[in-house]
Design a binder for these strands. Sequence first.
DNA 1: TCGGATGATTGTTC
DNA 2: GAACAATCATCCGA
Length: 468
Amino acid sequence: MGDHGFLPPIAMGSVVDAGFQQREYHRELDKREEEEEEEMDEQPRLMHSHTGVGMAGHPGLPQHMQEGTGGTDGDGRKQDIGDILQQIMTITDQSLDEAQARKHALNCHRMKPALFNVLCEIKEKTVLSIRGAQEEEPPDPQLMRLDNMLLAEGVSGPEKGGGSAAAAAAAAASGGAGADNSAEHSDYRAKLSQIRQIYHTELEKYEQACNEFTTHVMNLLREQSRTRPISPKEIERMVSIIHRKFSAIQMQLKQSTCEAVMILRSRFLDARRKRRNFNKQATEILNEYFYSHLSNPYPSEEAKEELAKKCAITVAQVSNWFGNKRIRYKKNIGKFQEEANMYAARTAVNAANASSHGSQANSPSTPNSAGSAGSFNMSNSGDLFMSVQSLNGDSYQGAQVGANVQSQVDTLRHVISQTGGYSEGLTANQMYSPQGINANGGWQDAPTPSSVTSPTEGPGSVHSDTSN
DNA sequence: TCGGATGATTGTTC
DNA sequence: GAACAATCATCCGA
C-alpha cells in the first residue's frame, strides 16, 4: 500500500464524471498491486480486469467501486479482494450472452475512448517501470553445463555417430577386450541413440506446448487489449515469462537426460562390469610362468609383453594377474599346492620331452604352444618348455637345455613320487615350499626377473623354476 | 541360487 | 612407479 506514484486523473474532471474517475483509479491500483505480486498468475488478473472493467452501477462491479469509498484501509482492501475473488469464482456461472452484452455495453460507452487513452498512458508508465526492474538475466551456468555435456555426448546437436567417441573411450578403458568391443560399441550406440531420440521427442513436445501456450496467451492478451490497455512490451514480457517457465522444464529434461547418459557411460566404462575370465590357454601360460618362477614371480617388462602377446591380453592385465596371483598364492599356499605340483609336473615332462627329442627342441620350426587352445598335453609340452625359456628372456641354447633337462627330470621324479600321497618324507610344502617368501611375507630378494633363469639351489630345493 | 574363483580398481606403502 | 592389500563386481559351476 501507500503512494503508487501517480495521481487519480482528477484533471479530467470537466470531462469525466468524478465518481467514474475514482473507480478507475482504484481499479488501476488493484491492477498494479497484483502485477507486482505475481508475474505469472496472469490469468486471474486478466479475468479480474475483465470483470472489473465495468460502468457505474454495473452489477459486475465490486460494491466499493460502485460507491467509491473502499480501498483506503487494510480491512476494506481485504473485503474488496474477497469480493473480487467471489466474482472470479462465479464468473463461469455467467452466461456467454450476459458477458457479451456487458462487453458490448462497455465498448459502446461514450467515455470509453477518452478513458482508454488515459489508461494507456498509465499502463505504459507502469510497464516501463516493471521492465526497468528486471534486466536481462545472464545465462544459467548449470544450463550451460548441461548443454555442453549433451553436446559432447552427441545427444544434442547434430548426430555424429551416436557418441562413437564415448564408445571408443569405453573400449579403451576396457583394456582391449577385443572381439567383444564391436558388439558393445553397437550396444552403447543403440542405447545412446534411444536416449537421444527420447530427448528430442520430449524437447519437441515442450517446444510445441510452449508455442501453443504462448499463442494462446497472446490471443487472450490481444482480446483483452480491446477492453484494457496492453502494450506490446507487456505482451513481450509475458512471452518471456512463459519461456522462462518452459525453459525450467526443459532444464529438468536435460538434467534427466544427462543422468541417463552418465548411467549408460558408467555401465559401459566400468570394466569390472564386463569382466571376462581369460581363456584357459592364457591362464595356463600365466600359471606356467608363475610356477616356473615361483622363487621370483616378477616378470620383467619384456616378459610381460611376451606373455601378453601369447595370452592375447594387455600388459596391464598381465601385471594385474601376477599381482593377484602373488597375493592369493601367499595368502593360501596350501590351496595352491596342488596346482603348483601340477605345473611342476608339466614343466618336468616338458623338459623330459625336450631331452628325448633333442634336436627337435632346437628346431626353429617347432610349433608354438599358443597354436592349440587349451591343449597343454604332453605332445606339445616341449614347446611349452621352449616358451618358458624364451619368456625368461634367454636365448635358447642346447647346452643350457641339457643341464636344465636333468634338473627337470629330477623334478619329475619328485612329482611322481609325491602324487602318491607325499609319503616319502617330502611334504607338500616341501614340494613347493614358499621358499621365496621371506619372513615379512614377501618374496625374498632375487635378481631381476630376466636374469633369474638359473639360480643355484640346494639339492633339496625343488621348485619349478625352469632354471632348475 | 549360492559361494568360490577371478579380473579389475583403489588406496597405501616403499 | 611398482607392488601390495583390500575390495568390488562379475563369472561360473554345483
